[in-house]
């Protein structure tokens, strides 16, 4: 379970402050799959970073009663000057896993081949996404935080992700930020719509998407 109580977050902009989240409350239970909807700048990425513990809220509490992944997004989580294998080694060490197991899974899932011996900064965004997904699936979490990134990959990669994430691990919880309504309708069973710093949880996906369309 993840409980967010009265989350506020603002950023310094010049001499002023931009309030991104101004009192957000929700609870995510085991196995619930949240689609995170909101316009650009509504705070989707910010919320995912806060839940992942990458950044800290100005006030409010986030309680994590399960193993939550790091945010899978376009940046972050990797050291660009290190190779894919070195990043895998680092993550295996930090999460206390056997490196060989992780490396085997990454090789198989990411299909990056010899590219894994190259520095991550030479990867395209699709290749980074493959590595990030492979690593987080290898570690195994109860809740995955996904920021749009599923959409970067090619058809083959998307199919693999969908299989691993929604079929093999259908009992896991998920927070998926996306503008792709089809995806959210298909794979999520709750929607969290962010607007003006507040958020509302809907169990009726059609209703949520309708509200999002009118924002």
């Amino acid at each position: 379970m993840i409980v967010c109580e009265n989350i506020r977050k603002s950023y310094q902009i010049g001499h002023g402050r931009k309030h991104v989240l101004s009192g957000l409350n929700f609870t995510l239970d085991r196995g619930e799959r949240f689609g995170l909807l909101g316009r650009n700048g509504a705070g989707k990425t910010t919320l995912i970073k806060l839940i992942g513990g990458v950044e800290l809220p100005d006030s409010g509490k986030i309680k994590r009663h399960m193993r939550v992944s790091w945010p899978l997004g376009f940046g972050g989580g990797f050291q660009g000057s290190l190779t894919g294998y070195d990043n895998a080694r680092f993550i295996a060490r930090v999460y206390g896993r056997n490196y060989r197991d992780i490396a085997d899974f990454v090789e198989e899932f990411s299909e990056l081949g010899r590219q894994l011996k190259m520095p991550v900064k030479t990867y395209s965004s699709g290749m980074r996404a493959r590595l990030a997904f492979a690593l987080s699936l290898a570690i195994e979490f109860d809740c995955y935080l996904i920021d749009e990134v599923i959409m970067v990959g090619d058809q083959n990669f998307q199919r693999k992700c969908i299989y691993e994430l929604f079929e093999k691990r259908h009992d896991r919880a998920l927070i998926l930020a996306s503008h792709n309504e089809f995806f959210i309708r298909e794979y999520c069973n709750r929607a969290l719509v962010l607007n003006n710093g507040f958020g509302t949880v809907y169990t009726d996906m059609e209703e949520a998407i309708g509200i999002y369309d009118r924002l």
Binding site: G52, E55, W70, G77, Q79, V94, Y95
Partner: peptide, 9 residues
């Protein structure tokens, strides 16, 4: 800062 992605750090 990117290491903050991993909560153990």
């Amino acid at each position: 800062a990117s290491l903050m992605y991993h909560r153990q750090v």
